[in-house]
Structures are given as structure tokens and as C-alpha cells.
Design a protein around this nucleic acid. Structure first.
Lengths: 155, 155
DNA sequence: GCGCCATCGTCAGCATACTGACGGTCTCGG
DNA sequence: CCGAGACCGTCAGTATGCTGACGATGGCGC
């Protein structure tokens, strides 16, 4: 029965957060199956579309992952023709990331299913609870941002 | 300023959950640095201590990860002498996982820092909000359990 | 008692995510 | 103008987490 006292995995905040993350990944994969795109890839494509030409390091800060991981994901997106990478002319250290027509088409098609995935993740809460949950979630993320290894750019 | 409308990454539940998970991982790593143990490893050790001799598939269901990943993590724990694996006598397909004295010592030392990591993850909420947040979180995890690729055993 | 099917552990493959290190590039002070 | 330090992209290494497939084993019906 796993009721050993001091066991209680499912009373630990971190454990619950990991599980909810898994659930969201699964829902997103289900809703967006035809597109073979993960939530992180979708976040990056969204950011690239909103701010075309951002360099990789800045992009990493926008979506809250580290430089190495972002370079990995962007390389995969580039292989699929969803983004282009251009070496900076003024500052030759930079690589600017740009959306392709494919990217814009994909984002348009994915908007509805992606939104459904996000909604379904918190669907079983009553509207009032949902509001409070999202508010608390946003507050925790904002407060803990500095503690993350890959802090969001506050801008 | 990334205020493009329909961009708003930080209003998407899935995005916030991923970020909060990263923050928790970082806090846990900080608090438990001397032990070189991750949250998932700690969860597994806790489960092994509470239910010694469980086979790998059952253990995977206890902590909510799939068989393949669990085997990976357990192999690492075994290399460090924190668990033993015994092939089943009655059912020779099974591998029973058992804690070693090292495991018990480690769990005792880590209890306080691990608890601090979990507490700090939700520390910036007021007590009332915290309670509501945890309740909603537990509810969402329970409701979405079946949607996860590696559902928890309800028991 | 024998074959069908489920289950277990494992493997290869892929994706996310971090660290620490490296070489290339830029900036700024002296 | 030139050297120190900062920054950028990349790489290797490690960890979590999933899929689909595989061989070994077990249980059950006929």
C-alpha cells in the first residue's frame, strides 16, 4: 500500500511538478502528433517568429534553456528546414536564427492543437481554482527564476 | 520587448510547469550537492527503502517513470553500491531491488536537505496560497495520471 | 503438454537539459 | 595598438525520459 509515513512521494512538491510536466508532455505529443514537434521546439519556433534574427544565446534566454541545449534543438529544426542560421556580419561570433515559410505554415497549423494541450493540462480544475493555480505558478516561476541554471531574460 | 500578442510564452501552463521543474532541479542540486544524487534517484532510493525487494517494473510504477529509464537509473545506483539487484527465484524474469547499508545512511543524511529543496520550491507563496497550490497540483496529477506515458500505480 | 500470449528486463535510438572546457571573436583600458 | 577579460558557439560527458523492438520466461487454455 506504500503508506509507510515519510514515504509519501506524492506529497512532495518537486515530485508532483515532475509528474505534471510528464503529463503535459504526453498531452502535447497527443494533440500535436501529426507535426512531430515537442513543446520546447514549439516554444523556440514561436520565439523565432516573434523576434526573427535573434542570436542563439539570446534565444536561449527567451525560452529558458542553456546555450548548449538550444544549439542542439535549433540544429534539429534547421535540418527539417524550419529555421535558417546566419553568421553575424558585424559580430562574427553570433548566429542569427530566422524562420522559414515552413515555420510560419507550421505555427499556423499548430496553434489550435498546442493551445488545447495547454488547456487540457489544467482542465480538471474548476475555473476559480485554475485561475489561482496559474497565478501561483507564474509567481513561483518569477520568484525562482534566478535560481534556475538557465534564467529567463527579464527584459 | 517580446510583447507580440499570441507570443506570451509565460502565460502557457506547460511552459510555466517546465520552468518550475527546472527551478526545483536546481534547488535540489544546490541543497544536496555533497551527495551527488538527483531527485529521481532520491525518489527511487526512498521507494526501495520503503518496499525492499520490489521488482524493477513495479518500482517504475511507484516513481512514475518507464521501465527502460528506471533500469538505467538503478544501474547507476548499483554501481555506486546504493542498491543490490537479485534475480527472482520463483519468477526468473524479475529483478528484485534491495537497499544496502549505504542507502540507509544516505537517506538519513539527505532527509533534511531534500525537504528544504522541496520547501524552497514553493517558498515564495503565502501559506494560504501554498496550500491551495499544492492541492490543485495534486489534483491535476491525479486527474492526468492516466494520460502520462508512465502512469503511477494507484494501489 | 504444448502453443499462444502477456510480462520482464534490455537495447538502440531520439530528445531535453545541464556542466565544464575549448577556440574564435569582440571590447576596453592602458 | 595590444593584451586581458568577456562573450559566443560548440563539444564531450552525464542524466532523465520516451518509443519500439527483442529474447527469455511465465501462465493459461485447449
Amino acid at each position: 500500500m506504500s503508506k509507510k509515513l515519510s514515504f509519501a512521494l506524492s506529497s512532495r512538491p518537486g515530485f508532483l511538478i515532475r509528474r505534471l510536466h510528464q503529463i503535459h508532455l504526453s498531452l502535447f505529443a497527443e494533440e500535436c502528433a501529426p507535426f512531430k514537434v515537442t513543446p520546447v521546439q514549439f516554444s523556440i519556433l514561436t520565439a523565432v517568429e516573434a523576434q526573427p534574427g535573434l542570436e542563439q544565446a539570446a534565444l536561449a534566454q527567451e525560452v529558458g534553456i542553456d546555450r548548449a541545449t538550444l544549439a542542439n534543438v535549433v540544429a534539429r529544426l534547421a535540418r527539417r528546414g524550419l529555421v535558417k542560421r546566419l553568421q553575424g556580419k558585424e559580430d562574427r561570433r553570433l548566429k542569427h536564427v530566422l524562420p522559414t515559410p515552413s515555420c510560419r505554415r507550421l505555427l499556423a497549423q499548430m496553434e489550435a492543437p498546442a493551445r488545447r494541450a495547454h488547456e487540457r493540462t489544467i482542465d480538471s480544475l474548476k475555473p476559480r481554482e485554475r485561475e489561482g493555480f496559474l497565478k501561483a505558478l507564474a509567481h513561483l516561476v518569477s520568484a525562482g527564476n534566478a535560481h534556475s541554471r538557465a534564467p529567463l531574460r527579464v527584459s
